[in-house]
Design a protein around this nucleic acid. Structure first.
Lengths: 182, 182
DNA sequence: ACAAGATATATCGATCCAGAGGTAAAGAAC
DNA sequence: GTTCTTTACCTCTGGATCGATATATCTTGT
């Protein structure tokens, strides 16, 4: 998704792509050559991108990569209907968010944000005692577990706040009028 | 790490372990049977845990798993000297945090927190223009990328705040006196 | 008596992915 | 002129992990 997302902004060669993906996702989990180049090839085989060999401006010749219409369609499909992990895994969610603007319909964007919003609403119970009973965060003995819960809560509230504003804004822009539940 | 960490609290059977790991890490990324049971076996072969077959209280017989001294040592080694990914990847970091209390020396705990603190201090530049120049977050066109940066910043500040308090507290408790740099 | 469902453990094949290694070109340093 | 570094690309291997599948036990409902 990151490869197609970046290429949708402008054509890039593999090395440049690698640096951009590394800056985005790699801040937390660097991308290896052995992952990037086979993935580029896979996307090329699938018709999602084309390759033009260009003389290297600094060194070895580059393969300029350009996204195709098929690639754009694929990217939009991934964004419009993300797999569960892209909603629940923060790392993946942030990657998705970085490219959500490529989904041009504000209604569709709002729907994706709503899925994340719904996920964040679910209360999270992380720890249980010996009998399987949930331990409320103020009764946790470990200060680290306490901190974990506290950070988790404040992060969630912060993102929920942003999501609500963003969703309202997108719906307003697309002429959506909220339905009152019967 | 999660398996040994939970077993360090009290002995558990695989199914219970699975639910606990799922609640902790699986909130974002569920654990599969095909991952858990081979890992348990690997840890058993490595002498990190022992297995006692007990009659199932509810259903099929259980294998009660107990951590050994070797397992405890291994867990402490992982906690004391975590691989880079456990510092930079939020998902992994939170797992580590959930078991950091098993590292009993407050000085050692503080050192791990300090590594995370150092990582969070590094400024994060996520996006670049066509010429490779960094784009400041207020000049990002996509509202999603703006939100991403904003959430990222506030999350970091929140965690940094907690880390600083916690580190100071741990150092105080271990009789550490901060050195003034020369 | 029987079926359904939760509990509980285990294996296997396919796939993903990182790390290590290899090639090559251009410019900089010595 | 030779080496070093950076840029740039690529492949192979092994380990990790997932999904599917299989098995067995006990409780509950019909």
């Amino acid at each position: 998704m990151a490869i197609l997302g970046f290429l949708r902004d402008f054509p890039l060669h593999g090395y440049d792509l690698k640096n951009r993906v590394a800056a985005l996702a790699g801040h937390v989990r660097p991308i290896a050559d052995g992952t990037l180049y086979p993935t580029i090839k896979k996307l090329e085989d699938a018709g999602c991108l084309t390759r033009r060999t260009a003389p290297g401006s600094v060194a070895a010749p580059r393969h300029m990569l350009e996204i195709t219409q098929d690639g754009t369609d694929q990217l939009r499909r991934w964004l419009r209907n993300p797999e569960p992990g892209f909603i629940t895994d923060d790392n993946k969610w942030y990657v998705l968010l970085a490219f959500l603007h490529h989904l041009e319909n504000p209604r569709e964007q709002a729907l994706v944000l709503a899925r994340r919003r719904e996920f964040l609403d679910k209360p999270t119970q992380l720890f249980f005692d010996g009998d399987g009973r949930p331990i409320p965060s103020d009764q946790l003995e470990s200060p680290f577990r306490k901190g974990l819960m506290q950070i988790h809560r404040s992060v969630n509230l912060n993102e929920i706040d942003w999501l609500d504003h963003q969703i309202a804004d997108l719906n307003r822009r697309s002429g959506y009028v909220a339905q009152r539940s019967p």
